[in-house]
Nucleic acid binder design. Structure first.
Length: 266
DNA sequence: AATGGGACCTGCGCGC
DNA sequence: TGCGCGCAGGTCCCAT
């Protein structure tokens, strides 16, 4: 599932392969993913525009076009952007001036495409908390200190801090040796600081390895990301903790699968 | 205010 | 071999 590192990887790759190209046509195979505006307006607002700039905000990808419009893409769980596309599993194909196409795939149809004139006015954008790289350690520590809620759902709350999803929340908490059910304000200053550092390091290392290919995520080239082999707890229930050998546990927390080492994480 | 659950979806893996 | 069911998770929405 694309989180900040996966979306950042896609952004960097798109900059290499589609930036500066003109969108000459759009084929919509399934209009469910087009959330706004209406399909024909969507097409009209894109065709003949050039991709001028590519931005990532948390897990949202934004393609700024030469005509003043922006295409905002949220991949949710199974969204993919593939270039050059073959159209086979595309929900939407963007045909480009180089004769190739950028395919938007999405097996589960959860993803959202929006064409708007001002992406910064999107409700989703306005509600986003800061990304981990945009705040200081002391700010992070202060943000946690007045929150009684469980730490894992809290760091996955995009309005609190943005970019972290289920996978990297689990990995960062393991690395910081913090139990996912700890109330946020029960962490010591030392634990808060370590967690903040581990969140940043985990995301950074995942970006360096071009993301984690679990479920559907692939790079724009179609290649899988390389970070899965570094996972310590995610999807490893029953397997020995790589630090102490205790079987990794899986619980449901906030309706989400949560993986942790019951011995290392207290 | 915080928390929990359901909805949105599809395909996969499991048990029988 | 085949069928039904639970599950996967990002975000929104509603209820408590």
């Amino acid at each position: 599932m694309p989180e900040l590192p996966e979306v950042e990887t896609i952004k960097r790759e798109l900059e290499k392969v589609v930036l500066g190209k003109k969108i000459t046509g759009v084929t919509i195979h399934n209009q469910k993913v087009i959330r706004e505006p209406q399909v024909d307006k969507f097409k009209k607002g894109i065709i003949d525009a050039t991709i001028k700039n590519i931005i990532r905000k948390a897990k949202l990808l934004i393609l700024e076009l030469s005509n003043g419009n922006s295409l905002a893409i949220h991949l949710k769980m199974t969204g993919q952007l593939v270039y050059p596309g073959d159209g086979k599993s595309a929900r939407v194909s963007f045909h480009l001036s180089d004769g190739k196409s950028l395919d938007f795939n999405d097996q589960r149809l959860f993803a959202e495409l929006r064409l708007i004139d001002d992406w910064s006015a999107l409700k989703f954008i306005q509600g986003l908390g800061p990304e981990p790289f945009d705040i200081t350690e002391s700010r992070f520590n202060k943000m946690l200190s007045n929150k009684k809620t469980k730490i894992k759902p809290l760091i996955m709350d995009q309005t609190f801090i943005s970019g972290i999803g289920n996978l990297y929340a689990a990995e960062a908490l393991f690395r910081a040796k913090v139990h996912p059910e700890r109330p946020a304000n029960s962490l010591s200053d030392k634990e808060k600081s370590l967690l903040f550092q581990e969140i940043k390091d985990t995301l950074k290392e995942a970006i360096e390895n071009k993301g984690s290919s679990v479920d559907q995520y692939v790079q724009v080239s179609g290649k899988p990301g390389g970070y899965v082999k570094f996972h310590k707890v995610y999807d490893r229930q029953g397997k020995p903790c790589l630090v102490c050998g205790t079987p990794v546990k899986r619980i449901a927390l906030g309706g989400r699968g949560t993986f942790y080492c019951p011995k290392c994480q207290q």
